[in-house]
Amino acid sequence: MSEKPLISTRDLSVHYPLRGGLIGPKPVVRAVESVSVDITRGSFFGLVGESGSGKTTFGRALLRAAPITRGSIKYDDGEVNYDLTTIDDKQLKDYRSRAQLIFQDPYAALSPRMTVRDIIAEPLQVMGLTKTREETDARVREIAAKCRLNLEHLRRFPHAFSGGQRQRISIARALVSAPQFVVADESVAALDVSIQADVLNLLKSIQQEMGLTFLFISHDLSVVAHICDHVAVMYLGRLVETAPTRELFAAPRHPYTKALLSAIPSLDPDARGTAQKLEGEIPSPTNPPPGCKFNTRCPFAIDICRKDEPKLESSGSEHNVACHRWRELAETEVPA
């Protein structure tokens, strides 16, 4: 793995204006606020958070599919480098073939009226990546085989397939243009556990084989723990903690990360009631609390947390945390 970032964002903010009243400032949803992060080439980068934390919007911004209000996104794959805030139409077309998205729901993502072959071939045709039908077919068959699809099934329609097979079709379509960067947004959330394991294994093996960089968006920390090498935790549009996966799970520093980890239902029936419970719900992004965005639910919040917003700061090699009290909490607190 090279250490150069493929994607690097600085102070990235995505705000959506809301219809407001006649007087006063228009309300805005601050979906993503001042996010600075580097995604290393060839890494499997996890992004976790509850619904409403802004993780999907962040993923879309990296694909230039959400409006960038402030800040910058730089992309550099060694062949080309783009500044996504100033990219022109011609470059954007090229970027589209280099950055792809895999959706959550394989039942909604595939057109029921196209054959599997046409679904997978569509990006090649839209982007003009292949010249002849033979060339297209060859590419489709190659990627379908990589995604462990039965080549005889290419002439069928999506309704004939199960959820796991459909998700493999979605993956094949995302990868057919030979992208460098793939955003997988809750790509296994709709699958049964026995199938989920299969799709995760497939994503990992393809990532390693093709040297891809993944942004893996998920609400499921145990899935992220297994597949990602780096994890960022988001809350109300902000990054609250980023670290290599092992480090994050062994020594979580932010109270939110700790709470998320302890909320995962344990498979041990004797561990009942030991979890550290988080009160309340995520506040509305139109009216976030002042100071640290987590202060309304944080059991350790003190005055400064309600006034000043903590910056993401280094707490060791590659481990960053945005909490005023992480140092004292790390010293005094028992692990979650």
């Binding site: 199960s162 026995s194 394991a197 920390l221 145990s222 092992r246 980890l261 498979l267």
Partner: peptide
């Protein structure tokens, strides 16, 4: 099989074992 397919936080190195095939 269901239990083996579950990602386990206690043991992140063990591979996920899917149940072969579909229902």
């Amino acid at each position: 099989g269901l239990l083996a397919a579950l990602p386990d936080l206690e043991d992140m190195d063990s591979p996920l074992v899917p149940i072969p095939g579909d229902i």
